[in-house]
Nucleic acid binder design. Structure first.
Lengths: 265, 265
DNA sequence: ATAAATTTGATCAAAATTTAGCATATTGAT
DNA sequence: ATCAATATGCTAAATTTTGATCAAATTTAT
């Protein structure tokens, strides 16, 4: 059996049963114990599993090296599919807010990613933590692109850093655009704890915060509160939004833009 | 059987079973192992499969050649053409220097970009200011990727920042790889003034500096001196290098690796 | 604490795989 | 049909992986 293949199977086994002894693996993969030990050592070096006495142990997902959730691939584009048509309209409206030459920040996410289509023929200065958006804009537009430093998280297609990041700190934008899994009286939500810190750092550098959220997101809760409503300047949503909530947002001094979902596009 | 036909069948087999050993393929396609090896090498160069020890492995669809060339392709890819074969061999040698799990820095440029092919099956932690390299590695490999913050320069496919950049400062690497337009008694040269500052910052974070330069670059001058020879630890060049110069570099305590240019692969 | 049992890493020879060079066969162009 | 270019198969040498053995380290049982 090929080494690579054996490695793959070994990881598959671990995925299912959490732990595996050298002996188990040796018989399941019919390879000698010496070989299994070498495999484990190698895979441990690659951060694919944890070597423990007697065998190996799986890593929990946060430690694990993303097992090829491809950029531009599965996870990201799949999320993009949901209500893609509405998101596209919100994105279109968002881009209309910008004047050529303006400095803006675009936070990663499937809603804001849609802005790429409309940014193609614009000439803005864009700071974004979305690697995939940067990629698109670099290829299809003349916008000036700035990226924050950090590690690339393939699953989200985003660049994250634990450190204070000077590139962000020196960037001053008039507007920041972001999507959200939920927005309500409690504020703007975020489901991915990894993202919160970066988002808050980005938000500090912009004069105006513009949130994109289709009507199903209104009033929805999620894991974490990213910021209170008072920090939101504009909310772009669709015409099916609950009028009560819209009124409430407006009473909180938020400019609400309702995009007609039956618009021809 | 026609070569093209055999290639197609080979890929079909891989599609079905993920892995295939040279031996398997040889009997299934009745061709000698030598031929199968040559096929695999060729197809791997075309990014149709991944060459692994003992055989070949499928690429998941997003890695497949279907994708369009990244970043406008023009300037950057054109530069890539020159002496591409030699550069590829230098890159291969460079990757051999790395151990899985190691933290390395790769400076942008056409030589170092070639490392992507050989990094595909490795598991390293890579910090690079090359946006295009990051793109490739993100799509085709499991390496952990870190990017410095800054503006995206399309022509060079590179991220540059005028600011001190914490992402870089917190990164500690054992090796830094860089290409150069010229290296001689005066030191390592750089032609693009924009790059110098970033390169010097990156260099500070690595224990060892490894320079890739084909033999035509040896003794060549360019606009700027990036660093003196004393800071270079390893020079990877090809066997057509001027022996006098090689001797000189060695007398300066540089480990010189000569790659045989007549090597096939 | 001591002994027994287990696991580990190192070493080495055998087996498998890759590479390189050369001879032969096939193909395409004239 | 002939020549050149390319593709194929074979072999020997170099490299890598594997499995077996064993001493040292670690854990478990007494």
């Amino acid at each position: 059996m090929l080494e690579k293949q054996r490695h793959q199977l070994l990881l598959d086994i671990l995925d299912e049963q959490q732990f595996a002894s050298v002996n188990d693996l040796s018989s399941q993969l019919n390879a000698s114990e010496a070989t299994i030990r070498r495999d484990i050592t190698k895979l441990a070096k690659q951060d694919q599993l944890r070597k423990i006495r007697g065998g190996a142990e799986v890593l929990n997902s946060s430690e694990r090296r993303s097992r090829r959730p491809h950029l531009s691939g599965t996870a990201f584009l799949a999320a993009k599919e949901q209500r893609a048509d509405v998101k596209r309209l919100l994105a279109k409206e968002a881009v209309k807010f910008c004047e050529d030459g303006e400095f803006i920040i675009i936070n990663g996410g499937s809603s804001t990613y849609m802005m790429r289509e409309f940014l193609a023929e614009r000439h803005l200065n864009v700071l974004t933590n979305s690697f995939v958006l940067a990629q698109e804009l670099a290829e299809t537009s003349d916008n000036q692109i700035t990226l924050p430093g950090g590690e690339l998280y393939r699953k989200q297609g985003i660049i994250l850093s634990a450190f204070e990041n000077d590139t962000i700190q020196y960037y001053q934008a008039s507007k920041m655009f972001m999507g959200t899994p939920g927005i309500g009286k409690f504020g703007v939500m975020e489901s991915d704890p990894l993202l919160i810190q970066t988002e808050q750092k980005l938000k500090k550098q912009a004069d105006q915060l513009i949130v994109l959220a289709d009507s199903t997101k209104l009033g929805k809760r999620s894991n974490f509160i990213l910021c209170p409503l008072s920090e939101v300047d504009v909310l772009i949503t669709d015409s099916e939004a609950d009028p009560e909530l819209v009124k409430y947002f407006e009473s909180e001094n938020i400019q609400v833009i309702l995009v007609d979902v039956n618009q021809p596009s």
